[in-house]
Design a protein around this nucleic acid. Structure first.
Lengths: 223, 223
DNA sequence: CCAAAAGTGTTAGTGATACACCCATGT
DNA sequence: ACATGGGTGTATCACTAACACTTTTGG
């Protein structure tokens, strides 16, 4: 058996768990399958890796094709390879984890998909294949990243208020933070900068707008 | 294109970065390749995933076949899929991260391999394919795991002295710790238990032997 | 008695938590 | 003037970091 290229080969896909924050709720983007198996069911966007295509490139391509979403924060999540996870045969999937700014983009699926939609990440519908397991794994990663890196800013526009930032943390980690302590911590970490602008038009005192001065995803112990 | 099983398929392998601690040095297990490409060169143990085999099972099987090592702590590390990483064609590899007790096992390669040996993990020889990159990634994971989980105990026998434990940390993280503070921390975390035994026969005061009372890899902020 | 590693406490500083009131705006 | 969320400081407690000497053994 010297010619290793003769081994039977599995199929390889990428699946993307993409999160966003809408109306103070964490959302995950799902697509409605228009082919079997699980036709008509909801699934993570994803698809087959082309034979000459890098994995991350494949993930970005599938995301764009199936949902119209681009310019995301993307990182590899985990590879799922249970031999029985797909009834069509051996399919190994490399799952990716993506974040996108709230109200960032319109959904505009192009291929293979009848519909793409945002769902509550904590109460998703039943999902095809082992996608529920992948989603759970992604949620854990998101929580971890929030506490130890600056990914939270990825959910926000370039300019944001500290209350918006705090809500991101509270929503994803399911706990309340003390406003004064939260701000003290953020300032002490020196990860935001006052832009000088304020958010007007509210029926209360206008909030200062800040921007992030670290690279997204940079390792900084936040909480 | 409804029959997705007709897509051209990549090859899929697993590679295992297995660490151990010998003579206060972190070691990685490498095998000498006896087939092309990189014949005669050093590489991480690994090989093709069988068509009906779970990924973790494949990693354990390859490790046993190529090195004789079993009963390891094993977790998935990362999936490397650069289309050019293997000259034989498209090969995607799921890298695993493994730890084994010091002086745990004898090396006893069975197949496809002329030789298996331990090398300094920080000054390894030139490696085949992109295995240097995989090793670097594994070293980072190891350092992280050491600080935030109880994996360090995986390097030690069931009973160990606190100085042995401290040396694991110092060797892998490249820094010295104060003996008193280190012990205070470990005791405060309540992760070790006095066995009542002592390590005799040294030309100095004998050390107490402790055991770990947490599951290996459990999440506990150590340092 | 010497060498070598084991074992042990205190202090000062830093960061975490808990907590309540005034401010600026739109209606 | 009132409702709404924005913005701020202090006191306590817990944890971290720095630091040196005595103990026990074998040779």
């Amino acid at each position: 058996m010297d010619d290793v290229t003769k081994f039977p080969r599995p199929m390889v896909t990428v699946d993307i768990v993409i999160f966003s924050m809408h109306d103070h709720e964490l959302k995950v983007l799902l697509i409605k399958r228009d082919i079997q198996p699980y036709k008509g069911g909801w699934a993570l966007p994803g698809g087959f890796v082309h034979i000459d295509e890098d994995l991350e490139v494949a993930a970005k391509r599938e995301l764009l094709e199936e949902t119209g979403v681009k310019d995301v924060y993307l990182e590899q999540l985990y590879t799922f390879g249970d031999p029985k996870r797909d009834s069509r045969g051996r399919v190994i999937t490399i799952a990716y984890f993506a974040l996108i700014k709230s109200e960032g983009q319109r959904l505009d699926p192009k291929t293979d998909v009848s519909e793409a939609n945002w769902f509550s990440a904590y109460q998703p519908p039943k999902l095809a294949f082992d996608h529920s397991k992948i989603l759970e794994y992604a949620l854990k990663r998101l929580q971890w990243k929030l506490e130890y890196t600056t990914v939270a800013f990825q959910f926000l526009q370039d300019k944001f208020t500290l209350t918006e930032l705090q809500k991101i943390y509270e929503t994803i980690l399911h706990k309340k933070f003390d406003k004064r302590n939260f701000r003290k911590k953020i300032f002490a970490l020196d990860i935001v900068e006052d832009t000088g602008d304020i958010l007007e038009g509210m029926a209360h005192r206008p909030a200062k707008l800040y921007k992030c001065n670290k690279k997204i995803g940079e390792l900084v112990e936040i909480l």
